[in-house]
Amino acid sequence: MLEKARRRATIIDVGRHAGVSAKTVSRVLNGEPHVSPAVQQRVRDAAASLHYHPNMLARALVRQRSMLLGLVYENPSASYVVELQRGMLTRLADTPYRLVVFPIASIIERSGEVAGLLRSAGLDGVVLAPPAADDLRILNDLASAGIACARIGPSRAIELAPSNIVDDITAAREIATHVIELGHRTIGIIKGHASHAASEARTMGYSQAFYAAGLPMRLDLVEQGDFTRESGHAAAERLLARAEAPTAILAQNDDMAVGALLAARERGLTVPDDLTLVGFDDSEISRICWPPLTTVRQPVFEMAREATDMVIAQLEDRPPLLRHDHPHDLLIRASTAAPPRS
């Protein structure tokens, strides 16, 4: 009995259990056509009953592929990274492909190494998250190495590779306009990492909202962050320590907004009665903090899922969708209100 428990089921065992040939089992598990639905179901039931799982190494050898797809990211926001991985894993479910993640501390410093790193890992394809999605060196190196790729949130050279796009400028303009229409005139800004094109796009959106309202965007109320909660906390401390402290803060992601929320509480301020605060992304932390954050939802999960499909299409010699423009939503929650009368 112990020996039987140790032995892994084979494709031959599945075939015998289902009453079909091993070749038919292989065709079903590989998603090949011309197998009746009834036979497909018998094979899947037999595989589940025997706890059979295909040998990924054997599949890779037969197909002369690793069946590995990578995710390259730098963004330190844990909730953002989780959404990226969830989107990719959802698309990879019931496929022979597997996910390998490549967190890189500084894309701008290591862009010349990325393609070599992915090639040495034997990847078939890769999804690039910001700022790698905008790095022309990486894109050109991947093309030279023959590694299929797709991009999330790029803002330049869209024609170089399949891309998933959200209009950061319009989204940032909408959330800044919401704050201005509440009556705020002294408004602080916490920018994201300088190497991320999204940070500049969101700053541009804010500036458009200020211009449309006839307000200056005061540079003395703009602080640099790096998309982490800690940087948002430090930036908010500097803003709130000013003689003319802002009545509202626009943070360029939810993690920095939560850091600002903590800094406000430490100074005895209440959000939104004393300070209006907004984020960006609609990450989980924006929904579970108190008060929940007014923010912009960008569909990170959907973008990652679509980018994965774009890579798989290239590997299966299907024409990929070259550009997918994703919608955004302004989500008004309890962290915004009119400025205090004083």
Rank of each mutant, 00 (worst) to 15 (best):
N30S: 10
E266R: 14
A257H: 05
C149Q: 11
A157F: 13
D274L: 08
I152F: 05
A234Q: 11
S106D: 12
A148K: 05
F210D: 08
M88Q: 00
S144F: 09
R173W: 01
V278T: 15
I332F: 10
K4N: 10
L84D: 05
S155W: 08
Y211L: 14
P340A: 15
E109I: 08
D167W: 11
T228I: 09
G153K: 10
G259Q: 08
A172S: 15
S199L: 07
H184T: 02
P327C: 14
R98I: 06
H328P: 00
V62A: 07
S155K: 11
P103D: 09
S120A: 12
A145S: 11
Y206V: 12
L68F: 09
A198M: 03
A47E: 02
Y97D: 03
A260H: 12
R265I: 03
H324I: 05
G19Y: 06
A145Y: 08
A213T: 06
D274C: 08
L219T: 12
A209I: 04
E159F: 03
G31T: 00
R287W: 00
G19R: 02
A245I: 01
P96T: 09
D309W: 09
L269M: 13
R305M: 14
L239F: 12
T247G: 06
A9R: 05
P154G: 12
A143I: 09
R229L: 15
A209R: 04
R110V: 00
T203W: 14
I180A: 11
A133H: 07
D45S: 08
R242N: 05
V258N: 05
G19Q: 05
V35P: 00
R265M: 08
I147R: 03
D281F: 07
D167H: 11
T276F: 09
P162N: 03
V300Q: 10
Y52I: 11
E284Q: 12
A245G: 01
N75K: 10
D167Q: 07
F227E: 10
D254Q: 07
R333D: 11
H328S: 04
